[in-house]
């Protein structure tokens, strides 16, 4: 089964979970770690997550910052346990939804494509006035 862990500095992970529930309608198979908050123990929660894994789980971990300590700890822990895992660092909401909602095999190639697509979902708009094109020829 597809298993997802969202691990972040502070409560971003729980916030993501709330957004995922609203948009996708399901948070099945998703665990969160809200690291370095007063009431959580990062190491213990990570070990607990690892204990819950089964051999046929396909594992995706989302971390908030590539260079951050959460990402370092996750990387180190899974390498030490020799558990194969796909880590996506500096996640955005689109990539979590894409991985979560994707059906069929999530091969390395497919995951790379999804990451590329979602990276381009980070967009800037310098808004001055509304521009719309509403061409039927373009629609068909």
């Amino acid at each position: 089964m597809k298993r997802i862990l969202i691990a972040t500095h502070g409560r971003l992970a729980n916030g993501m979970l709330s957004s995922i529930e609203l948009l996708a309608g399901t948070t099945k198979g998703i665990a969160t770690i809200n690291a370095y908050t007063n009431d959580t123990d990062f190491d213990a929660e990570l070990e607990q997550f690892i204990d819950s894994l089964t051999a046929d789980d396909q594992l995706f971990i989302f971390t908030d910052l590539y260079g951050g300590s959460v990402n370092q700890k996750v990387t180190k822990t899974f390498l030490e346990h020799k558990i194969p895992v796909t880590v996506i660092a500096g996640f955005n909401f689109p990539i979590i939804l894409e991985i979560l909602l994707s059906r069929g095999d999530l091969t390395q190639e497919k995951v790379t494509d999804l990451v590329d697509k979602c990276r381009s979902e980070l967009k800037v708009s310098f808004l001055t006035e509304a521009h719309v094109t509403d061409d039927e020829e373009d629609f068909f």
């Binding site: 509304a130 521009h131 719309v132 509403d134 039927e136 068909f140």
Partner: peptide
């Protein structure tokens, strides 16, 4: 026009949209 623009932004890029 403003709502049309935001609706178009909300649609995935591979899906055609018309209002």
């Amino acid at each position: 026009d403003i709502q049309k623009m935001t609706l178009k932004m909300a649609a995935p890029s591979h899906v055609k949209t018309i209002i």
